[in-house]
């Protein structure tokens, strides 16, 4: 496969994953705004923008952290490379570039996602329509994913697609946790207060884990358990441990037949080992914030090593 094609697949799926993550963040923000207290909502919107990674750009262009601004910024601001619209366009554009590597189902799914969302996001989305648009985003990315799983050969094309997905997801989960890491610390003040409950819920909802967590923990919401769930629990498809185990698996497939060990695989194995069989107390010992910062950096290093190992660029 051409290096550029591998890069195109990787980025197509990174962007798709990102569009979904951005939409989910916005969804969470809305829930909090509807249920939380008046004065907390502005800081909630702010932390959502921070998580999405565009705080400075937001402040410059939009100013106040209110619901309309954040919605615009996250959904349809072309200057924001992580907005849903930007992501879908970038995913589709990468898809177009690697079209010969995609099954027609995958291509058509991403092309249709682009056509539909471009239209839906052409004008500002009103509160009334938000749920519908968010559902549409979720459905379209599910369709692409479904087409990928159902129609693509399990070869290197598939592996590069999955690598993009999990690198982005690992980064996303680490960021969500890092922005809110302080509410998970045992030393935090009003532990167990209604404020904390709301914060914990935000975290869980941002990674679509609110219900699964409650189900597994029978409603017993404790910060340490949340951190454990999102960092170390391999049953949880958005946890760091799960992402890393997938990345390691895909890289192992890709390294078959190559003579020397790939640097990216070595790095992934190292990161995987950091998460495998770890106790969450260890992590807190190390310092949650430091741990997460390190995870974010290492994920970025891994992505750039993958790019080098497989010659995405000349």
């Amino acid at each position: 496969m051409l290096g550029r094609t591998a890069g195109g697949l990787f980025w197509m799926f990174r962007y798709l994953e990102r569009s979904e993550n951005t939409a989910r963040l916005l969804d969470t923000g809305f829930r909090i705004a509807l249920t939380g207290s008046e004065n907390s909502s502005e800081s909630e919107w702010e932390s959502i923008v921070t998580t999405a990674g565009g705080r400075e750009a937001f402040v410059q262009k939009w100013g106040d952290f209110d619901q309309a601004n954040v919605t615009n910024f996250l959904l349809r601001d072309r200057d924001n490379s992580s907005s849903v619209l930007s992501c879908i366009e970038a995913a589709r554009s990468n898809g177009r570039m690697v079209r010969t590597a995609l099954s027609s189902e995958v291509w058509e799914a991403v092309n249709e996602a682009w056509m539909t969302l471009k239209e839906q996001l052409e004008k500002p989305v009103s509160v009334k329509n938000l749920a519908e648009v968010l559902t549409s985003i979720r459905q379209h990315s599910s369709l692409v994913r479904g087409a990928l799983h159902g129609t693509m050969l399990r070869n290197d094309i598939y592996d590069f697609s999955r690598l993009g997905t999990f690198i982005e997801r690992a980064d996303n989960t680490a960021r969500i946790l890092d922005v809110k890491y302080y509410v998970l610390l045992p030393s935090a003040a009003h532990v167990g207060g209604s404020m904390d409950n709301m914060q914990w819920e935000t975290i869980l909802r941002s990674v679509s884990a609110f219900r699964s967590f409650r189900w597994l923990h029978e409603g017993d919401v404790k910060p340490k358990a949340i951190a454990d769930f999102l960092i170390l629990d391999r049953r949880m498809p958005r946890s760091l441990a799960y992402c890393l185990s997938q990345i390691t698996g895909n890289l192992t497939y890709l390294s078959r037949g190559s003579e020397e060990e790939l640097k990216s695989l070595a790095l992934a194995n190292q990161l995987d080992a950091r998460l495998n069989g770890r106790d969450i107390d260890d992590v807190f010992e190390e310092g949650l914030h430091e741990f997460l910062k390190e995870a974010i950096n290492q994920t970025a290093n891994l992505a750039s090593q993958i790019q080098d190992d497989f010659r995405f660029y000349g």
Binding site: S258, R311, G314
Partner: peptide
């Protein structure tokens, strides 16, 4: 950008060289 002259041939950059 995928192509380069190497060893007297035009060659394509693949993930494996």
């Amino acid at each position: 950008s995928d192509l380069k002259v190497i060893d007297g041939r035009v060659q394509m950059r693949t993930t494996r060289g």
